[in-house]
Amino acid sequence: MQTTFLKIVEENQGIIYKVCKMYRDSREDQEDLFQEIVFQLWKSYPKFRKESKVSTWMYRIALNTAIVTFRKNKIELEYTESLPNDDHANYTDSPSENEERMYEAIRTLNKADRALIALYLEDYSHREIAEITGITENYVGVKISRIKEKLKNILN
């Protein structure tokens, strides 16, 4: 069971990476959340009945963990004259400028909106988003339109 689990998470770790980037701004917080999500995935794996897609299950657990996990108390913002050394990078190559802008924009949304937009950007249907979040299908549509408008205003 463990081997299969690790293979699934390794192949789909991009989902965890994206959720961490959406819900945490510092590298250290993102790493902590990554670890927390993998731990929660492992705990819930025996209950995963494979009726839904692996990615759907992973998004549900990852988003839920990101929303309920409490951040350590610390100074949130650190301004520097130059870009900091990337000594903690362990996810991937440095994200592009556009990618960083996208995450910064998404992080300005509230926690519920971040979950909805992530699922939308991942091409889930409104019905699937409604099933994952627990809100009605009609209002998924309404809400997604509003979030898209918000993002457009932030980015332009």
Binding site: Q13, G14, K21, P95
Partner: peptide, 12 residues
């Protein structure tokens, strides 16, 4: 950007 983001490199 979303589709291209998130290629993790953590091993098993």
């Amino acid at each position: 950007n979303w589709k291209n983001a998130g290629v993790g490199i953590k091993d098993q």
